[in-house]
Amino acid sequence: SEYETMLTEIMSMGYERERVVAALRASYNNPHRAVEYLLTGIPG
């Protein structure tokens, strides 16, 4: 799925699956924002 592709691409940058899933959830599946959250911390 498109979601799995995003997940895999972000994980390939060296992040753990659960952190990527949390970041995508926080960003409403916006991959650019999710990466930003992984770099700066997930808000909330």
Rank of each mutant, 00 (worst) to 15 (best):
S1H: 12
S1I: 13
S1F: 12
S1N: 12
S1P: 13
E2C: 07
E2T: 11
E2V: 11
E2S: 12
E2F: 11
E2Y: 12
Y3P: 02
Y3D: 04
Y3E: 05
Y3N: 04
E4T: 08
E4N: 09
E4S: 08
E4K: 07
T5W: 11
T5V: 12
T5C: 09
T5N: 13
T5A: 14
T8S: 14
E9S: 12
E9H: 13
E9C: 11
E9K: 11
E9N: 12
I10T: 01
I10H: 01
I10A: 02
I10N: 00
I10V: 03
I10D: 00
M11A: 04
M11K: 01
M11H: 02
M11G: 02
S12R: 11
S12Y: 06
M13V: 03
M13R: 05
M13S: 03
M13H: 06
M13C: 05
G14E: 02
G14C: 03
G14W: 04
G14F: 04
G14H: 02
G14M: 04
Y15P: 01
Y15A: 01
Y15R: 02
Y15V: 02
E16C: 07
E16R: 05
R17Q: 07
R17I: 06
R17E: 07
R17P: 05
R19D: 15
R19S: 13
R19A: 15
V20A: 08
V21H: 05
V21F: 04
V21Q: 08
V21L: 09
A22R: 08
A23Y: 02
A23W: 03
A23F: 03
L24G: 00
L24C: 05
L24K: 00
L24R: 00
R25A: 15
R25N: 11
A26G: 04
A26W: 08
S27K: 02
S27W: 04
S27F: 07
S27Q: 03
S27H: 06
S27V: 07
Y28R: 14
N29H: 07
N29K: 04
N29S: 05
N29V: 04
N30G: 01
N30Y: 03
N30D: 15
P31S: 06
H32S: 13
H32Y: 12
H32D: 14
H32G: 12
R33W: 10
R33S: 07
R33T: 13
A34Q: 01
A34K: 00
A34I: 03
A34G: 02
V35P: 00
V35F: 07
V35H: 05
V35W: 06
E36K: 07
E36A: 10
E36S: 06
E36Q: 13
Y37K: 04
L38N: 00
L38A: 01
L39A: 10
L39M: 14
L39P: 00
T40I: 11
T40A: 14
G41L: 09
G41C: 08
G41Q: 11
G41N: 10
G41T: 11
I42S: 09
I42H: 09
P43M: 11
P43W: 10
P43L: 12
G44K: 10
G44H: 13
